[in-house]
């Protein structure tokens, strides 16, 4: 989906019910540079009720669990491979009330320690949005009335960069298994270089005739190493032998081009057999 279409769906498609509450945040991934030590993000309240906003930072980076699902790792003790910027990134303002249809620029300022070594430092930004008091339908003070407010919290990545950085990724241990109408693809991705790798993983399933019969495309972030899983729809494909091609590139349509660290595409392939019973 293009960003324009995405934005249109956000501003037009979100229900504007009486109790809708939340906030639109852009960008969804924040980059800061040591030369300027500042950047901004924009909050917008598309709803019809005010939202109380709180912004905090903490250290975390994405990983995967044993099943290949994405997880946020927030280690209490860290080593040099887990560089944190959370302690010296500040948001201004940190608390605010965002009224309906109102926009607010949040300034993010960095106060890194003196002598900070070249490299990339990571943080997470948490934006909490809370609405007003709960409205319980048909309130009667002689009865028991029950209602719950829903609140939202959004956690976004921030990367602080100093010096000339490089990134890369290796791909190994590709496997695939059929689960119902899907092919579950897994692989091991290990970051190279001095910065997290942000890019896209694409897979294509090719039949004996050389035709692409299925494909998937997913954004990926490799901060250290991950073993994610991807799903590729294979409904209606006949049983038989196929070849799965996996390609990792640094193109990301959703990120500013100047923030993407380019790599040479990484590719690998495996043979896949789709069983008749699945």
């Amino acid at each position: 989906m293009t960003r324009l279409a995405a934005l249109a769906s956000l501003t037009i498609g979100v229900p504007l019910g009486l109790h809708a509450q939340g906030v639109m945040i852009a960008p969804h991934q924040v980059f800061m540079d040591h030369r300027t030590r500042s950047t901004s993000m924009t909050l917008y309240n598309p709803n019809s009720t005010p939202a109380e906003i709180t912004i905090t930072t903490f250290f975390g980076y994405p990983g995967t669990d044993s099943t290949g699902e994405f997880e946020l790792r927030t280690p209490e003790s860290r080593d040099s491979t887990q560089p944190s910027a959370a302690e010296w990134i500040e948001a201004f303002p940190r608390r605010l009330t965002l009224y309906p249809q109102e926009k607010q620029i949040i300034r993010l300022l960095a106060r890194p320690p003196a002598g900070l070594a070249d490299g990339e430092y990571w943080s997470r930004i948490a934006v909490s949005a809370k609405g007003g008091a709960v409205a319980v339908a048909g309130i009667d003070t002689t009865k028991i009335n029950v209602g719950l407010n829903l609140e939202v919290r959004t956690i976004l990545p921030l990367q602080y960069r100093k010096g000339r950085l490089q990134t890369g990724v290796t791909l190994s241990d590709i496997s695939a298994k059929t689960i119902g109408d899907s092919l579950e693809v897994r692989g091991k991705f290990v970051r190279q270089g001095s910065a997290a790798f942000l890019g896209t993983v694409r897979g294509t399933l090719v039949n004996d005739a050389g035709q692409i019969v299925a494909r998937f495309s997913n954004p990926i972030a490799v901060y250290l190493d991950i073993a994610p899983r991807f799903r590729c729809g294979i409904a209606g494909l006949p049983p038989g032998r196929y070849v799965l091609h996996v390609e990792v590139t640094s193109d990301r349509e959703d990120l500013p081009a100047e923030s993407v660290l380019p790599i040479k595409p990484v590719r690998d392939s495996i043979a896949v057999v789709l069983p008749s019973e699945r």
């Binding site: 979100v14 939340g22 852009a26 917008y44 598309p46 609405g131 029950v146």
Partner: peptide, 12 residues
């Protein structure tokens, strides 16, 4: 590219 998380309906 934004992200938007909205609570649309309370649990009433």
């Amino acid at each position: 590219a934004p992200i938007n998380v909205t609570a649309n309906q309370n649990l009433d």
